[in-house]
């Protein structure tokens, strides 16, 4: 009985979406909650990730640079410079720096959507990315 319980817990933890969470990503998700985000919606984030938006004469989405398969390397849309995979499973450095996460959310939302992302959107994206 105890064995099953322990196995069950372990499985539950392994299968939970935030399996690649770090103290930093936890802290950031907490901050987004404080800033007004509700429950994170990773399914919506997945759609948004691939949705192309026209900003300043260029149509692009997050996947334009990062691709739709987050275990793969991406490429900068102008310079072609390699961008490391977003998946923490493949790239363990991901989501370990609050400063970096904030910086790139700001820059990339401005580039891809022409505006900063809301706390809700960032919570959605971060939860989605952590599960890849």
């Amino acid at each position: 009985m105890k064995k099953i319980l322990v196995m069950g817990c372990a499985l539950g933890i392994l299968l939970s979406p935030a399996v690649f969470a770090s103290p930093e990503s936890d802290a950031l998700l907490q901050k987004y909650q404080t800033d007004g985000a509700g429950k994170a919606d990773p399914a919506k984030a997945k759609q948004d990730w691939n949705r192309e938006v026209l900003v300043k004469d260029e149509k692009m989405s997050c996947s334009t640079c990062h691709t739709s398969d987050l275990s793969r390397e991406g490429k900068h849309h102008v310079t072609g410079k390699t961008i490391g995979p977003m998946s923490a499973r493949v790239n363990p450095e991901r989501f370990t720096s609050v400063k970096k996460m904030e910086k790139w959310f700001k820059r990339n939302c401005l580039d891809a959507w022409g505006r900063e992302c809301t706390a809700q959107e960032k919570a959605d994206f971060l939860t989605f990315l952590l599960a890849q």
Binding site: K56, E58, V78, K99, K103, K106, R107, N108, L110, D111
Partner: peptide
């Protein structure tokens, strides 16, 4: 840097 040749490259 907010418009660094078309991209946002803002720094703190």
């Amino acid at each position: 840097l907010a418009d660094h040749f078309g991209d946002n490259a803002e720094l703190d």
